[in-house]
Design a protein around this nucleic acid. Sequence first.
DNA 1: TTGGAGTCTGTAACGGGTTACATCGGCAAG
DNA 2: CTTGCCGATGTAACCCGTTACAGACTCCAA
Lengths: 340, 340
Amino acid sequence: MSSSRATSIRQVARQAGVSIATVSRALTTPDKVSEKTLKKVLAQVERSRYKPNLLARNFRSKRAYSVVVLVPNIANPFFAEIIRGIEQVAQQQGYAVLLGDTEGREDREAYYVGLVETRQADGLIQLHPRLPKAARGANGTLDIPLVNACEYIEDAPCPRVGIDNAAAAREMTAYLLGLGHRRIGVILGPDSSPLTSDRLRGYKHGLRSAKISADDALIAQGDFTMSSGSVAAEKLFKAKQPPTAIFCFNDEMALGAIRYLKSTGRSVPQDVSVVGFDDIEFASFCDPPLTTIEQPTREIGNKAMSLLFDMLNGGKPEPTMHTLPIKLIVRDSAAAPPKQ
Amino acid sequence: MSSSRATSIRQVARQAGVSIATVSRALTTPDKVSEKTLKKVLAQVERSRYKPNLLARNFRSKRAYSVVVLVPNIANPFFAEIIRGIEQVAQQQGYAVLLGDTEGREDREAYYVGLVETRQADGLIQLHPRLPKAARGANGTLDIPLVNACEYIEDAPCPRVGIDNAAAAREMTAYLLGLGHRRIGVILGPDSSPLTSDRLRGYKHGLRSAKISADDALIAQGDFTMSSGSVAAEKLFKAKQPPTAIFCFNDEMALGAIRYLKSTGRSVPQDVSVVGFDDIEFASFCDPPLTTIEQPTREIGNKAMSLLFDMLNGGKPEPTMHTLPIKLIVRDSAAAPPKQ
DNA sequence: TTGGAGTCTGTAACGGGTTACATCGGCAAG
DNA sequence: CTTGCCGATGTAACCCGTTACAGACTCCAA
């Protein structure tokens, strides 16, 4: 709060009896300064409680040393974990993380892209499936350094990091088939999400491998919220031939589905099996503990930030996909189907 | 990505045939420029896709237009909601939010305080109960603009926003007493958290009003995690006279307690009532839906940012407490105690 | 016609660092 | 005793905006 102007490098220089260049060097490249001078300068820095003004430093170096993370909803624990991963390596590399919770609104998205365009931030990590309009340059290439995580953007000209959603869904489907299920319902994410179609493809592939044909009556739409899970489950169970297992494309919807099933007196997994996707923290604490797919959230975040860092340091923005491994977590929400 | 240097205000000025000052004025104080010139300048700005370098602007104005939010764990949905509230008004006021997830580590805390000291950020909102060492100046006053939210800091010389924890706990205790409970256990948060002692005081006050004396065997320690809730519940129920209701000082611990109780074959709320605190999103979706205290998270965030904004604009850092109202949310996890 | 007020515009200083380049001194080799 | 090299230091330009101040011009009243 002290309204007195902060000490500047010039004052420190004067009081230490050296030039400002020497002070600057003492602080940023100490090996370019003789030991004697270094000691003298650092002592004075200490004495006058000098803190370099990073606004000035960053201005000079044309870097903000911060990156924006665009996320649809920070209150979603899955995204939160990824952000922790991002922040972890950002901090190691001297970058700060600007939180860009868009709450799904495009104007906010544009606002945060604007931060990069005006150099308040150096790059952007996107957890959305959608490429911000503003980020796409005239000729189709990227205008700003951007990395895409989790939800991938179709043919975006930027690095992506995530998992093999199709393979994961196939694995889960195979697991349910292995338990003896033949009618497996799915609750999808929103249409706009490419990973929904990947997971759906994996699911269908899994069924096909077991020579089971997909049935549209077993497919319900959700939007990754718990309440949508309840609604979708209800729809599946109002059909003529309800499933014996439900594969939800995220854990929240699985929780919602379980809630609906319990409310109708069915028990999980005795009557119906329910599995999720993501392995959020609550998945292991709900009742019953959820069988699900664990995503390497930390690692996704770490990797995304590393990739962005490379781009910021001259790396080419190669549009390669970095696939990280998932793990099937077996808990108690899926079991063999009830005997007829 | 374009490595070509960005267009500067000088180029725009030259190409528009005016001085740099005129361009600057056209963009920041358009009413100081004649209509004709304004149009000419803006046209050129448009044509050359000029974006002012905010690094330079901020440097000049000695403001970073960003604030740090220090949070112990962003993956905690309660904190996430508060951050959303902060971000909402930050954006309105032209500030960016730097995420400071400390993961409980002091070095990270110091790092983020450093961002403010070096002017990469203008102020700090703290969701921790602890005042960062670095923030406290020589004479006990604050060195940096700081606002404290949720968890308050004892005698910190800064504005605080939160709820009346004692009153909330008293209300919840009264509710349980009203249902007929006489042996009400509590699961506390960590000792370091002042709000734990406030809630405990409210609980005891509630009991006293009903002429019930507190029993230390009914008090168990937790740390706000789900697993600690399970452990604490176990401790309470291994005692000679277990409680008929448990008041957990947050929802996660309540979920953990419920999980333990179910694992021992007890049902909630028929055998034991369990209530929480915070009203996180999962509270309404667990089984049974949790009776709890709703905190006005959005509003806490909004208010905290407004207060910080005022401080940054010359307001005095008055150490006043801003108390926001809570609401008792009755769901299905508490009922009358079983008849003996 | 002149003075003065008011509007618009331009010149240039400024902010607080970094860094290219120049300078200086010491020391070893010739 | 030079010369040359090298490490340490200083000088000053530079980054890109904002803004104080001054100058030019218009318009109107005296």
